[in-house]
């Protein structure tokens, strides 16, 4: 293998770390285990992270390794006690000092793909860290941030000096600060009230992207679907997308170009946006008379 050209180093691998070692004191329940739309927050965070990093780990306290929520993921155990979130990052850097770490808190239910993607695109590996500037107080958000390998020595020195606030560490370090694309994405939840509010927000968002649609089938399509009618929740935005979704489920033989579409018992276009509650009929070639 040829050596790398002088002055250019291979970029460090990017690993991911979800911090799930908190005590959830104010929530009075394990925040990693809180469920949103059928998945625990830890599963959601790991799924978001895993798409972007070479390896993803969950950061745990030494006594949490075998609990059911955490046990299914690769783990890194804290080596320090009572140091807060910074202990997780220290342990990860000790285990893989060559890696850059994308660190996520486990209490960010509104964190979205756009926020993560923007952080990754804007990242500057030549800086110590890349982080968001809080939309609330303008300070760095340390728990949705990328820590480059070069942050390891100053972070160790910071902790050795008796400090443990990761936000202040980023303030004093060479941190690239970004504005959040979605100002609520990094709202963390600490109380049962905040949990309820986050769930309501997620439910409202998901109902904005899926619709309740009734489909009625006639003639050949009725026979091929094996039913006269069904109610579904679909992400299809148009009849064209809905027919494609149904054609993947049923052995339809009629191509869209021989069908017509009706929405709410009126002829419609294939590209008409579907609305919640719409009743859709795909009309096979007619043969009255």
């Amino acid at each position: 293998m040829d050596p790398l050209p002088a002055g250019r180093l291979a970029p460090p691998p990017l690993y991911g770390l979800v911090l799930a070692g908190g005590r959830s004191t104010r929530m009075r329940r394990d925040k990693a285990a809180l469920a949103y739309q059928g998945r625990t927050q830890l599963e959601r965070a790991m799924a978001l992270l895993s798409a972007h990093v070479a390896r993803a780990f969950v950061s745990v306290r030494a006594d949490q390794g075998s609990d059911a929520v955490r046990a299914r993921f690769a783990q890194i155990s804290d080596a320090h006690e009572n140091l807060g979130p910074i202990a997780g990052l220290l342990a990860a850097q000790a285990q893989h000092p060559e890696a850059a770490w994308l660190v996520l808190a486990c209490d960010l239910p509104l964190l979205d793909e756009a926020t993560l993607t923007h952080l990754l695109r804007a990242r500057d590996p030549a800086r110590t860290a890349t982080a968001y500037r809080s939309s609330h107080d303008g300070l760095p958000e340390p728990l949705c941030a990328i820590y480059e390998p070069r942050s390891r020595a100053p972070l160790a020195a910071y902790v050795a000096a008796g400090k443990q606030c990761p936000r202040k560490f980023l303030l004093g370090a060479d941190t690239l600060l970004l504005d959040e694309p979605n100002p609520r994405a990094l709202d963390n939840i600490n109380t049962p009230e905040e949990y309820g509010s986050a769930m309501a927000t997620l439910t409202a968002e998901s109902s904005a992207t899926t619709r309740h649609i009734t489909v009625q089938y006639f003639a050949l399509l009725r026979e091929q679907a094996g039913r006269r009618e069904e109610a579904l929740v679909s992400a299809a935005r148009t009849p064209r997308e809905l027919y494609a979704e149904l054609a993947a489920r049923y052995p339809f033989t009629l191509a869209p170009d021989v069908l017509r579409v009706a929405i709410n018992a009126e002829f419609s276009e294939w590209s008409t946006p579907l609305a919640d509650g719409d009743a859709v009929v795909f009309i096979p070639p007619v043969a009255g008379g």
Binding site: F218, A219, L220, R260, A262, V281, I283, P284, V286, A287, G288, G289
Partner: peptide, 11 residues
């Protein structure tokens, strides 16, 4: 027009 346009099917 009925034969062309009205959603009626014949098996």
């Amino acid at each position: 027009e009925v034969k062309q346009r009205v959603p009626i099917w014949k098996k």
